[in-house]
Design a protein around this nucleic acid. Structure first.
Length: 489
RNA sequence: GGUCGGUUGGCCGAGUGGCUAGGCAUCGGUCUGCAAAACCGGGUACGGCGGUUCGAAUCCGCCACCGACCUCCA
């Protein structure tokens, strides 16, 4: 690794060289979804961003343990006692068991993630399966005096924590400012301070998801599962914690407070946050109601969609922006991404058939170095992709005969594309999916032969009619110097 | 109101002091019976106003606009 990977650490607000605690191992924890409704485009961003990081760390030779949780306990609807657990709420609305809701949307999430070609995490722990660990963490915090129990609920004492450690370091918040700005909530007198947060909540009568504990029949607080499960599977101190920028405060800030208070030390070494996908300049979120689910995108089944977009188009679209920038959704942008992706895939196909020359006029080694530099610079995939398109130009030029490449060059170029396009960017050639149809192949051969005969007769009326009709049916004919080719679309 | 980030060509989106980002769209050319694809070439840009500098999209200041977080959120 001549030039090391640098990654932006939200904690220090700068790029830092990535050096894992225990090389060659690297640990990464990423906040997964709360499964109470269908995954939308916004969920694709962290999934793909951290899939990219997972893939790249693996490519660099690290043995990565990638933990991504499933939140299946639900959070309160709002910061009031009468707030309702979102999973419970959905369960009641759909007349389902809470765990039925969880299962249903978890299944959809997994299917969508497979469609987007994200690798499965090494461990995918569920909050409901780690109630004991969470309770143990609560006890630890009580023992150390950073938590207090009242009416069967346990809260984290932020003010006390702030006196010993500094609360707000990740999000740049200052406790005094928070105190000044937090509005008073009626009937919220359980907490000593409004910014204290629940570690354990006593369940209201009739509440469906609850577990026995030292304090009450209840359920764990909003931020506890990530602390408990990351410590369990990655250790008290681990390398990377990822998630969406919107989780920075309060979720990750509270995680830091809990873990630090319980362990007496910082747990996370690199905090990595992806930015949001916006729509008309505004964050796409379930709570804002401006979201498009992944299934809707794949099917083209949403009023804002002019057409369907394939999973790889979505993946490419996301990778064409840097993960820390906002990315604005529009049909135009998706269409452009889809075409760019197609062009990349066609070049990969061409690369497979390239003929070597004795000498080479192109420099693959230089290209390869540029690609590595781009990735090492905080996973700069837009730059990487721009270099890959330089590769596309090389491939097509060699194919056209305007450039030449030798055996070694072809081998290097194939390795480069295999590594970066497929292994690291995690793209899949879905243009091949439709070409495995034997019957279509046979039929097309017959049609192309007939059209060829017409062309030999110079009967262009007939040959053009065949081409036009096929175009209408979604098949494009191309008369190349290597013979007639066809493709869908 | 507080904290943080952004404003780049027709669209998306990189870049951080001088050196073509890239994709899509568009225009011209080559190739082709014509297309398509590919290749070659062209045009269009850095929110506004000042300042620093030999030189700024890039640094500094002010202003305008947009957004994120401050309540669950990827």
């Amino acid at each position: 690794m001549s030039n090391p990977l640098s990654i932006y650490n939200s904690l220090s607000r700068q790029k830092e060289v990535f050096e894992p605690l225990h090389p060659p191992f690297a640990g990464m924890y990423v906040c997964g979804p709360t499964v109470y409704s269908n995954a939308h485009l916004g969920h694709a961003r962290p999934a793909i961003t951290f899939d990219l990081l997972f893939r790249y760390l693996t490519h660099l030779g690290y043995q990565v343990r990638y933990v991504r949780n499933i939140t299946d306990v639900g959070h309160l609807e709002n910061d009031a006692d009468e707030g309702e657990d979102k999973i419970v709420k959905t369960a009641r609305l759909q007349n389902l068991e809470p765990m039925e809701v969880v299962q249903k949307y978890m299944n959809t999430f997994h299917r969508n993630m497979d469609q987007l070609n994200t690798l499965k995490p090494s461990i995918e722990p569920r909050a409901s399966g780690h109630i004991i660990e969470q309770q143990e963490l609560v006890r630890q915090l009580l023992r150390k005096g950073f938590a207090y129990e009242i009416n069967g609920s346990v809260y984290f004492d932020v003010e006390k924590y702030n006196r010993k450690y500094k609360y707000g370091k990740l999000s740049g918040r200052i406790l005094e400012d928070l105190m000044a700005n937090t509005r008073e909530l009626e009937g919220q007198d359980e907490k000593r301070n409004p910014f204290d947060f629940a570690l354990w909540k006593k369940a209201a009568p009739g509440h469906l998801m609850k577990w026995p504990s030292d304090w009450s029949d209840g359920y764990p607080g909003w931020h506890l599962e990530c602390s408990a499960m990351s410590i369990k599977y990655l250790g008290e101190v681990f390398d990377i914690h990822g998630g969406g920028m919107d989780l920075q405060f309060p979720h990750h800030e509270c995680e830091i407070a809990q873990s630090t208070a319980a362990l007496g030390k910082e747990s996370v070494r690199y905090w990595v946050h992806n930015n949001m996908i916006t729509i008309n300049g505004q964050k796409m979120a379930r709570s804002l109601g401006n979201f498009i689910t992944l299934d809707q995108i794949f099917r083209g089944d949403h009023p804002l969609l002019e057409q369907a977009f394939s999973p790889m188009t979505v993946r490419f679209f996301i990778l064409q922006a840097h993960y820390r920038s906002t990315l604005d959704f529009s049909n135009e942008a998706l269409i452009a991404a889809g075409k760019g992706y197609q062009r990349l895939m066609k070049a990969v196909e061409t690369l497979g058939n390239l003929k070597p020359s004795a000498a080479s006029t192109v420099d693959i080694e230089d290209l390869s170095e540029k690609c590595a530099l781009a990735m090492n610079d905080d996973l700069n995939t837009p730059i990487l992709i721009s270099h890959l398109f330089d590769g596309v130009k090389i491939i097509n030029s060699v194919n056209d005969g305007t450039e030449k490449i030798d055996d070694k060059g072809i081998e290097a170029l194939r390795k480069l594309f295999d590594d970066y396009v497929f292994k690291i960017l995690g793209l899949r050639d879905e243009t091949q999916d439709s070409k495995t149809d034997d019957l279509a192949e046979e039929l097309m051969k017959i049609i192309i032969d007939l059209r060829g005969e017409a062309r030999t007769r110079k009967d262009f009326t007939t040959s053009d009619r065949i081409r036009d009709e096929l175009k209408k049916a979604g098949v494009t004919i191309k008369d190349t110097k290597d013979g007639v080719k066809w493709e869908r679309g």
